[in-house]
């Protein structure tokens, strides 16, 4: 076991873990940050999506040893009052069904909109590769367009 210093949502955390332990399990089982979910463990579904220095990262396949000194952002850090424009859009479009994939979806959408404030349908298609078993995709698309409008108004 090694010691690692992580910066998560602007806060420093010290953890002990095997260097190969994926960030997802450090977040969930060491730090109790359970907003990021486990869906596949092989980087395919996106339920574990976090942002690292702004980039979309599938934390189930990202070793903790590569996380030091990086700015890690999870769903927990998005807003206190659940009022980030993407969250507001998600609520207004009533996107989630079971909800399990939604933290990852939202984190991917936040990253997309920061890079591209007015994404086209094609841009959304290319960026949003997260899986949703409940089939919320049509609403995810609408919510991203709505969030883009909310962000433009702000």
């Amino acid at each position: 076991m090694n010691k690692f210093k992580l910066t998560i949502n602007g806060q420093d955390h010290a953890v002990e873990a095997d260097p190969q332990m994926p960030l997802l399990w450090v977040l969930r089982d060491r730090l109790g940050l359970t907003g990021s979910k486990f869906g596949c463990g092989i980087g395919v579904c996106g339920a574990c999506t976090v942002r690292m220095d702004g980039a979309v990262t599938r934390s189930c396949v990202f070793p903790v040893s590569a996380c030091e000194g990086r700015d890690i952002r999870t769903i927990e850090g998005l807003s206190e009052a659940i009022d980030h424009p993407v969250q507001r859009a998600w609520i207004e479009e009533q996107v989630p069904q079971c909800g399990y994939c939604q933290s990852g979806m939202i984190m991917a959408a936040v990253a997309l909109l920061e890079q591209n404030p007015t994404p086209s349908d094609g841009d959304i298609d290319a960026a949003m590769t997260n899986l949703c078993r409940c089939g919320t995709y049509p609403r995810v698309r609408k919510a991203i367009h709505r969030a883009a409008r909310l962000m433009a108004e702000a």
Binding site: I82, W90, G99, Q102, I106
Partner: peptide
């Protein structure tokens, strides 16, 4: 009416068994 579980899901605060 706006669904009551949705803000929980949109903030990662809903507690699934794994959580």
């Amino acid at each position: 009416a706006p669904r009551l579980e949705i803000p929980l899901h949109a903030s990662g605060r809903s507690q699934f068994t794994v959580d």
